[in-house]
Write a protein that binds this DNA or RNA. Structure first.
Lengths: 245, 245
DNA sequence: TTAGACTATTTTGCATTCATTTTTTGTCAT
DNA sequence: ATGACAAAAAATGAATGCAAAATAGTCTAA
């Protein structure tokens, strides 16, 4: 349909040294960040209404900038805006989660591939450090510490990909998933946990060899397995207390 | 009541690429769609200011809903909002383009992998049809037709991935790139063109065999090569009629 | 003539206001 | 007591108003 785009004749060559203007610190962005964190951190129950008035008071602003922020959050997929019925925290169906995990898998897969092109020995060493640290948590059954370091490892790989666009998108999708507490009974699934450790070793190995294509595969599978474990947890969530509002 | 929007001549796009699954028809969403298309179609020169007032008149609305839409477009990366200095169509540096292409490569790579898990024989047949159609365009040196069909092939693969989240993200990034005219002298690079055809054959082959991991690799490489060709074009734009049609 | 400074106009950011729509509340009849 | 209906209250979507900032424009001085 829109393939017939009238050519405007605007020259394509970029004005070379466009050393991007870095302005920031607008009040509106401040609101956006705070609100996004507020939602991602899970301060609002799943599917609950997000009353504008209340948030306005909480943030000490009028409705206009708040509503702008809400539109953005809706575009990001964190909340949904029902016409005339206000904003609700987006309720993720199981299918939504599966899709999100798969997209994350794709992004991490890409990150691994790109990382192999540009990662330095020092960065690999740093990741190895994290890996051993994580192994320690694993041995001590310290799930919280484990997940924390695990996340840092994945973020390090994304960072090594040298792609800000990817990094941003990754952060966005990660935020969407973060609302969901799925790590809870990971501790009980010792088998999956051990498997994850082995996968991480394979990741490190491929990273050391800069085997991009291979790492890409491994990362995808790793995330796929994570997805399976997470969904399993959700479908049989018998008794444990991480569903913290 | 300002509910009647004067038609400005800007075509209201159908629920385009947006992974539409929700009920909407809010006036604001309408504005968002129109404005997004307006920008993606390249109606505003690169880096040019986008005066609110003017757009308001063009769309026949007040500034409030327009500004909301602008915030969203900024979040999508199509425009940038300079504090107190209004909105500009985002100027993509060469690095930005490289990053975007790589992210697209990652998404298509993922799409290929997922497609292999779920694609039906009928869908493959349809893609084969498109492939032959595209081959015809190739033989006739019909670049426009070629690109059109090429895009439909890629979209078909994304659709076959059965992942609305991926589809939406894909559409988003595709929109960002679409502003850039890079296809122009592709016709002259006969070598690259032929190469692209071969890659597409490899894609089809892997798809038929449902070789997900393999297809993932091929798709990434295919997009990587596309990126190289595109960037090459941008860096050496020595006089050719990119603005001809 | 040009550079600089000062003023006027425009533009932006946010608050406030207004008209609907939705939701709640209150009353009444069955 | 329960359900239905109506009115009140609240919330939402959009327009307008206003102060601050930026841009354009003009005038002066070197």
């Amino acid at each position: 349909m829109k393939s017939t785009i009238p050519d405007t004749g605007v020259p394509i060559a970029p004005p070379a040294g466009n050393g991007g203007d870095r302005q920031e610190a607008s009040l509106h962005d401040e609101i956006l960040l705070r609100l996004r964190d507020y939602v991602v951190e899970g301060n609002i129950p799943n599917g609950a209404r997000v009353p504008e008035r209340q948030l306005c008071e909480m943030l000490g602003i009028s409705r206009t900038p708040l509503r702008e922020a809400l539109k953005v959050l809706a575009a990001e997929g964190l909340i949904e805006l029902l016409p005339n019925r206000g904003a609700r925290v987006r309720q993720l169906s199981q299918r939504d989660l599966e899709e999100l995990f798969d997209v994350m898998a794709g992004l991490e897969s890409l990150a691994g591939r790109l990382a192999c092109e540009a990662i330095t020995d020092e960065e690999i060493t740093a990741i190895e450090q994290l890996h051993y640290e994580m192994y320690g948590h694993y041995l001590h059954r310290d799930m919280h510490g484990y997940f924390q370091v695990n996340q840092r490892i994945h973020e390090s790989i994304v960072a090594a990909a040298r792609n800000e666009t990817l990094k941003t998108a990754y952060g966005n999708f990660a935020g969407r998933i973060r609302r969901v507490r799925y790590s809870a009974n990971f501790a009980r699934k010792r088998q999956r946990w051990a498997e994850a450790m082995r996968e991480h070793e394979a990741i490190l190995d491929a990273l050391r060899r800069r085997a991009g294509s291979e790492l890409s595969d491994i990362m995808f599978q790793h995330l796929r397995n994570k997805r399976t474990a997470a969904i399993e947890h959700l479908t049989e969530p018998q008794g444990d207390a991480t569903a913290s509002p």
